[in-house]
Design a protein around this nucleic acid. Structure first.
Lengths: 231, 231
DNA sequence: CGTCTCCTTGAATTAGATCAATATGTGTGG
DNA sequence: CCACACATATTGATCTAATTCAAGGAGACG
């Protein structure tokens, strides 16, 4: 169903993380132990921007490891309001659930390559292999920590602080922010409107804190000023 | 340090969940496997309302299982704004971290009895015992699911929806909400002000949706109406 | 029976949303 | 290469939900 739009490819693993996805990858754990322990359910699959990966409510037989590109996981309210839970880059796991059903839906933000794994196989291996189990526990705890940080941002931070935190989160070592996602995605991640995100970035530019090379590429001119905002 | 205010007691395990904590407990997994597998680090410890359990930044050598009462885990912003991440009732684990440091601080909301466990022992056991590891992984994933639901509430729901969701979350089978926490706690959990929480509940009462038996005890007169608000 | 803490209520303010254009690309076909 | 169409982004004007500021009540407790 949601995988129909995906095109199976026989290789593509050598194409390492794009520089665009690198900042996200930096926040994820090494997954080397995985690649050895778990056999992919199928060859890697490619998704075009905005194409669905799985739907909320879908049977969660399969989970994915992101090889390249960026994935968003979201929830919808009945009136159409959307909350993006997280963006996932190379190395991240998406779609892993304890019970059998996906609690969110996932879509490709950019062109993505994902490796699908069977959840069934995982459960047996986790029970058998303490090392692997430790890795998955650790992975879940790291995701939890991020979700908790996100709650603080959504519950108690101003628009200025949310956008500042987002830019810092996605900046690379050279203070360049390469945005894989559109303004609407940023807004739905930060619990704001697209207009507020746009205005806030513009304001940062007026204040000389950032420079917009273009809409998707922003340079932090004064990283400290941004850090002070969220301190 | 943060445990100084706690008084070690030699028993208290037989005192099962108070009715007050029951709704929270319902959201937690059975932990029977634990009690057998992991030996407490010390006898159970009692905490008075508002007393600190551990501080953000503290060495996370110890984690706790809530035996009775309610615990809050929180983060502070530098200007004093507080976000309550979660309330924890009987059966819940608090203070378990992957790295060695507590990412939040924890305080007793009501009178609490907690059993402390050493994290050190846990890591070895998890690596050795797949069954136990599976339980901890599952626990972390359930916490993650709750944190993600909370993000949707904070990012995209109105004050009315947040308060409605909170009341439904804490109602027992008889549609009675026994609130262990003060209005300020509810506000800091929902990302609102105390005034907005108060006004919203008052409005529910005017609309005949709830009845306030007293400030800490609310009866849902029309559960469906509340459910429709968050649908 | 006063004092304290917690809760509620009211009035004024504001951050961010909404509504409404306008601009800036970006790809397409002539 | 230009002109058009379409997406996405920015900007402006207004509105509103929630906050802030400021009193009052209502229990709880010594």
């Amino acid at each position: 169903m949601s995988i129909q739009s995906a095109i199976a490819i026989d290789q593509g693993f050598n194409a390492r993380t794009t520089s665009r996805a690198a900042p996200l990858m930096a926040q994820t754990a090494p997954t080397s132990a995985w690649d050895d322990a778990l056999a992919p359910a199928r060859p890697a699959v490619q998704f075009a921007p905005d194409s669905p990966i799985y739907d909320e409510g879908d049977d969660a037989r399969t989970f994915y490891k992101v090889v390249s590109g960026v994935v968003r996981t979201c929830k919808l309210l009945s009136d159409g309001r959307r909350q993006i839970d997280a963006f996932h880059g190379a190395g991240d796991i998406v779609g892993l659930e304890i019970d059998g059903v996906h609690r969110m839906y996932a879509e490709a933000v950019s062109n993505c390559v994902l490796v699908p794994y069977r959840r069934q196989g995982l459960e047996a291996m986790v029970a058998a292999d303490g090392q692997l189990a430790q890795q998955f526990f650790s992975y879940a705890m790291r995701r939890l920590a991020r979700a908790q940080d996100h709650s603080l941002l959504l519950g108690r931070c101003t628009a200025i602080q949310r956008v500042a935190a987002f830019l810092l989160d996605h900046a690379d070592e050279r203070d360049i922010v390469e945005l894989a996602m559109a303004r609407q995605d940023i807004a739905d991640y930060l619990g704001l409107t697209i207009e507020t995100v746009s205005r806030t970035i513009t304001q940062f530019e007026r204040d000389g804190v950032v420079e917009m090379l273009n809409a998707r590429r922003i340079r932090l001119e004064d990283r400290e000023a941004l850090e002070d905002l969220i301190a």
